[in-house]
Amino acid sequence: MRLTLRQLAIFRTIAQHGSTTRASAVLSLSQSATSAALQELEHALGAQLFDRAGKRLVLNVNGQGLLPQAIQLLEAAAQIEDGFQHADIGGRLRVGCSTTIGNYLMPALMKALSKRAPKVKVDVIMGNSADIARHAAQLSIDLGLIEGPCHLADLSARLWCEDELLIVAAAEDPLAKTAKVSLHQLASARWLLREPGSGTAEQVSELLLPHLKHWPHTQEVGSSEAIKHMVAAGLGISCLSRRVVGDLIAQGQLVVLRHGLPALTRPFYEVHHRNKFVSRAMEEFLQILEGFPSAYRRPCSA
Rank of each mutant, 00 (worst) to 15 (best):
Q72D: 10
Y296I: 05
D51C: 04
H86R: 15
S301V: 13
I227Q: 01
A295F: 12
L166T: 01
T178M: 09
V181R: 03
S241L: 11
S223E: 07
V204L: 03
V256I: 14
S294T: 11
L165V: 07
E283M: 06
L59I: 12
L155T: 01
A53T: 08
K213M: 10
A302T: 09
E75S: 07
D51A: 12
L286P: 00
I146E: 01
C239F: 08
A53L: 14
L38F: 07
P210K: 11
I101H: 00
L209C: 08
R12H: 10
A171L: 03
G291S: 06
K119E: 11
L289H: 05
N103T: 09
H211E: 10
H217N: 15
H17N: 13
S205R: 10
S114K: 15
L41Y: 10
A250D: 13
Q185I: 03
P293V: 11
L5C: 02
L113R: 00
I237F: 01
R158Q: 14
V61M: 10
R134T: 11
A36Y: 13
Q185N: 05
Q31G: 06
S224W: 00
L207S: 05
A25S: 11
H229S: 09
T4H: 05
R52K: 14
A117C: 13
L67T: 05
K111N: 09
L27Q: 04
R274K: 14
L5A: 10
P262E: 08
V245E: 02
V26Q: 14
I80R: 15
D131C: 04
S279G: 05
L289N: 07
Q69I: 12
N103C: 02
Q72M: 08
V278W: 03
R92F: 02
A53Q: 15
N275Q: 15
R52D: 01
A117T: 13
A36C: 06
R92P: 00
M230D: 00
G65V: 06
A233N: 12
L183D: 11
Q253V: 00
